[in-house]
Nucleic acid binder design. Sequence first.
DNA 1: CGCCCTCAAGTGGTCAGATGACCTGATCAT
DNA 2: ATGATCAGGTCATCTGACCACTTGAGGGCG
Lengths: 244, 244
Amino acid sequence: MRNSPGQQQRLPPEPEFHAVRKGRRYEQVAEQIQRLIASGALSPGDRLPPERELAAKFGVGRSSLRDAIRTLEVMGIVESRHGSGTVVRDLSTDSLVVPLASVLAHKRELVAELLDVRRMIEPALAARAAANATEEELSRLEDILQRQAEKVRRGEPSIEEDSEFHYTIALAARNSVVLRVLDVLMDLLRESRARSLQVSGRPERSFAGHQRILRAIKRRDGPAAEAAVRKHLKEIEEVVTRQL
Amino acid sequence: MRNSPGQQQRLPPEPEFHAVRKGRRYEQVAEQIQRLIASGALSPGDRLPPERELAAKFGVGRSSLRDAIRTLEVMGIVESRHGSGTVVRDLSTDSLVVPLASVLAHKRELVAELLDVRRMIEPALAARAAANATEEELSRLEDILQRQAEKVRRGEPSIEEDSEFHYTIALAARNSVVLRVLDVLMDLLRESRARSLQVSGRPERSFAGHQRILRAIKRRDGPAAEAAVRKHLKEIEEVVTRQL
DNA sequence: CGCCCTCAAGTGGTCAGATGACCTGATCAT
DNA sequence: ATGATCAGGTCATCTGACCACTTGAGGGCG
């Protein structure tokens, strides 16, 4: 049963070898359940049979079945409710974006890189908004800027308006995945954003940047919207970089 | 160990209530372990104490401890090795990815959105690569294309080269966050990409697209690199959309 | 009749113990 | 030096028991 020959040996340059990992029983169970869901035999909202019954059906112990359920639960595929049962979850965007969100969450310390991601994504979002935004969305952007102007005038923090402005632009881009990614990004960068808005004159310039962006979007001018966002983000980056 | 006072009490009607999920014991354990890792008390490569010992330390049963470990394992934070122990994983490796490609297969409209994210990110990556790529990276890109050409000529699947090409461009962009995001994206889109490469003539056109991109990068021509990537992705999108 | 309370049945959460499977390092034989 | 064997340690799985929560039915009361 010893299947690790020559682990200590230097292998000659040859086709690379891959570590062999024997599957665990619960992983197989989890896969089977996933297949049942993928095949349509189980749908979102469906309740799985009780643990004890399911364990018997799969021919495994309840521990292994629970491990499988746990695995699927972390993956967002099912949800266990104490006393009630385990249901298949709606495969919404959130379930799919969990891996993206967790990737970003573990990189919170890399502010510069996160800003860089914004620089890649947000100009495209602004261009999309310039093409797609409804009148309602434009009104909403205007409302947000009015609120921001009020707060700036009164010297109050305006980070919520900042978030909302960018978020509304992303909404107009009609991509729920990016919306979610941006949500996480903004949250991760919350501290540095709040700090940068405390720099003297920064709230005013933030507001001015938002105005430029909105004007371009209202003109339906995609490239100008992109350029305005780039300029806006560049200013943010400069402030944040100076603060690091 | 009973730390749930007044669980059965009715709370008076007040501002909106959010569903309250009483934490499960194992979730608390998992969080504690995560905190130990985040604080630096545990580092990648460190081995956790044996399950039985750890369970005793946390004052829980071994099942609960195992559930916590299972949770962390699915999240890619630790890895349990049968007979050997549980180690903290290196957070900079692929371990953060939870593959959900099979789930994606069930949710076709998200493919378009994920492709859309690629369309936002990858032109920027190509422009970065045009500015930053080292000679070694350029060589590597060329090697990849040679391998792809070979495979296309022999009629073999070339999805690995496709991935590697895009990944290497992202590497040259010097942003580890985006690298990981792209990794997740490519993985999530793996099935649709594999299928699109099965369309007659598609491998050849994919290769041609990669050539155009590489030529622009070698010329250090950012805008041309962007345009080439856009065209390439647009072709992919058309094929994939037709297949849905 | 409608509302509220109680209770029983069902179901997940946790604990404990036992056995099997795997891993690692040391020792011995060739 | 290499391969085989063994002992001790650790995870994987099974089983059984008990606790905690949920749900629905039935009964009592206004």
